[in-house]
């Protein structure tokens, strides 16, 4: 006798043990008790719930990405605007070159006046106004320029 034949014969003589101590009516009642507490089968179609959270999740991710992108653009725009305003402020506060040259010249004149008043009270420049001084300085510059050339 080969093994397969012996096995089949053995299994036929030694059946599977039956359910021991299980009340059939109670078994059915327990199943039906759970069935009736649940939803009706018609209301539970095959995995139709799956696409809902999947689309919902995708939409939420897209919305979050959009919010982040918009936020980043806004921050960048605000920074650019702040930089432009700062540049405008600096430009507005900075004096033109000619005015700066004039201010520096007047400062020098003031310094000379302070030193000169103590050194020589009979200086020829005594009694000259600022405008006269400026004219003289320009004439001196022009004289030096023509002499050097």
């Amino acid at each position: 006798m080969d093994f397969t034949t012996w096995l089949r014969t053995w299994l036929a003589r030694h059946p599977l043990k039956g359910p021991a101590g299980i009340d059939r009516a109670r078994y059915t009642a327990e199943v039906m008790g759970q069935v009736k507490t649940g939803l009706r089968p018609a209301l539970l179609p095959a995995r139709h719930w799956l696409p809902v959270p999947r689309w919902g999740l995708a939409a939420a991710v897209a919305a979050a990405g959009l919010v982040v992108a918009i936020g980043a653009v806004n921050v960048q725009r605000r920074q650019l605007a702040e930089q432009a305003m700062e540049r405008t402020r600096l430009l507005a506060e900075s004096a033109p070159t000619e005015e700066r040259w004039l201010d520096q010249t007047l400062d020098l004149i003031d310094q000379l006046n302070e030193g000169g008043a103590e050194a020589d009270s009979d200086d020829a420049s005594e009694g000259l106004s600022d405008d006269d001084w400026l004219n003289e300085l320009e004439l001196l510059d022009q004289a030096e320029l023509s002499a050097s050339s």
């Binding site: 043990k17 359910p19 021991a20 101590g21 299980i22 078994y27 327990e30 199943v31 759970q34 069935v35 649940g38 939803l39 089968p41 018609a42 539970l44 179609p45 095959a46």
Partner: peptide
């Protein structure tokens, strides 16, 4: 047998809930 009872009852409940399929 006890585990078999639990699993087989669970199978009936699964079958009921998926009966529409």
């Amino acid at each position: 047998h006890e585990d078999a009872k639990d699993v087989s009852q669970e199978a009936f409940i699964h079958a009921y809930r998926s009966l529409g399929q």
